[in-house]
Amino acid sequence: MSHSIDASDSLSSSGLGIPGGHNAPRELRASSLAGAWRRFIGRRLIGLAVNLVLLVLVTFIIVRLIPGDPAAAIAGTDASQSQVDAVRAELGLDKPLPVQFGQYVLGVLHGDFGTSFHYQLPALQIVLTAAPYTIAIAFASLIVFLFFGLAIGIAVGIITRGDRHRWLDHVFNIGAGLIASIPAYVQATLLIMVFAVWLVWLPPAYSPSYGLAQSAVLPVAALSLGCIASVARITRREVAVVLEQDYMRTARGWRLPSLTLYAKHMLPNVVTTALTLSGIILTALLGSALIVESVFAWPGLGTVSVQAISEFKDYPIIRAAVFVIGTISLLFTFFIDIILGILDPRTLGDHRG
């Protein structure tokens, strides 16, 4: 057996046994990985295109579910029925739904969601002006909840390994579950009461006089706290599983330094799970941002959407806002999938490295 192995090794090293010599396996792996990436990107782009088509359909239908008549809201409470009908005709709301949908799709293809009923400006222009504010706190919240969720979950998982410090495990699970169950808008209200009203450390709402960064602290905290708790709980469970794997037991048996043991051998598996979870959490986070922004008077998509729905029945702005929010969520998820593929090629689906 040993002779056959030695022979095969010598053939491989000399380049006689395998076409291309010893570089062939590496070239084959690189070619396989490149092919897996092409198929992966292709699948994701097709999925992204399908979701965008569905998003266009949803944004058209969703405004029909909102109670109230935008023509009546614009005409005013004292307007007669003929005046309301005139406004409805001016807005194009008297046309059959298939005609309205066709005009809407044609406009979206040209980047035109219509003119705002209330502001008399292009709806997409108003939404894109507010979008950077929402993207800023959403991205900041993503970084915050990933960092602290991973750090807390890993720390608790390591400390409680092998049923040690079970009291800490119970306290952690109860505390994280409680925080995760509190709605973001309730947490926002509590944060205002503590840090803005009682301690007077931070502004209770957005104001140019305080600066963007200082005004963003409480909205980011309100969006992050529940996500931190969720990520920490999942990470703690993942750490408990990874630490009991055979390769981790072997690594501990070799007396590897703690930094090498946890950072090199444990962290990549845990990060992959956390990033996968963050893609799911992000969609819920963007939904929560719509309410949290209105609590803090944050000039983002949430404030614009709430006003358009509750006050103006402004169909073009509602459609443009929902489309932009959905697109942001899809793009964030797409980039997270790419990062996962870089960290762990197994997530590409059909690569065997």
Rank of each mutant, 00 (worst) to 15 (best):
I154T: 12
A263F: 10
M266W: 06
L109R: 06
A320E: 01
A73K: 15
A321V: 01
Y262M: 03
R164Y: 06
F60H: 12
D163Y: 10
V84K: 11
G92V: 04
S224G: 06
F172A: 09
P19F: 14
G20Y: 12
V220P: 01
A72M: 07
L267K: 09
P203F: 08
L52W: 08
A86D: 11
A75K: 07
V292W: 01
F139S: 15
N51T: 14
Y185S: 07
T59V: 10
H170D: 13
D246H: 12
V144N: 08
F139Y: 05
A34Q: 14
D112F: 01
V306C: 02
L93F: 10
L16C: 12
V50N: 08
A240E: 11
V156R: 09
S224H: 02
P268A: 05
R164M: 02
G17W: 12
R38H: 13
F145S: 04
R39T: 13
L348E: 07
L275P: 03
S305Q: 09
G226K: 01
Y210H: 14
F312C: 01
A136Q: 13
I62Q: 07
V322M: 12
T134N: 08
F101L: 14
R29E: 15
S329W: 00
V50R: 08
L33C: 11
V87A: 02
G47C: 10
V324L: 09
T347K: 11
Q120S: 08
A232G: 08
I74G: 03
I234R: 02
L261I: 03
A216S: 14
L28M: 15
R319W: 01
G15A: 12
L91A: 01
P67Y: 03
I46Q: 13
D6T: 13
S4K: 12
W37T: 06
I18A: 14
A184T: 02
I74S: 14
A229P: 10
V58I: 15
A136V: 00
V108D: 03
D163C: 00
I74V: 12
A72H: 05
G47I: 01
V58N: 06
L106A: 15
L285T: 11
P98M: 02
Y315G: 00
V56C: 13
I66Q: 12
T273I: 11
A86Y: 01
I182Y: 10
P98T: 02
I182W: 09
I66W: 10
G353Q: 04
T160V: 13
I18T: 15
P204G: 06
G157Q: 03
T134R: 05
T333K: 07
R319C: 00
I159Y: 11
W201T: 04
S209A: 12
Q307W: 00
L286V: 05
L256K: 10
G211T: 06
P219C: 00
F147Q: 11
G21T: 09
A89I: 05
L212K: 13
E90L: 06
A320V: 02
G175Q: 04
R352E: 12
Y185N: 03
P132C: 02
D314H: 07
E90R: 15
D9T: 15
V242K: 11
G211M: 04
D85A: 14
L97C: 04
A79R: 05
T59L: 06
T189A: 14
A138E: 10
A49R: 06
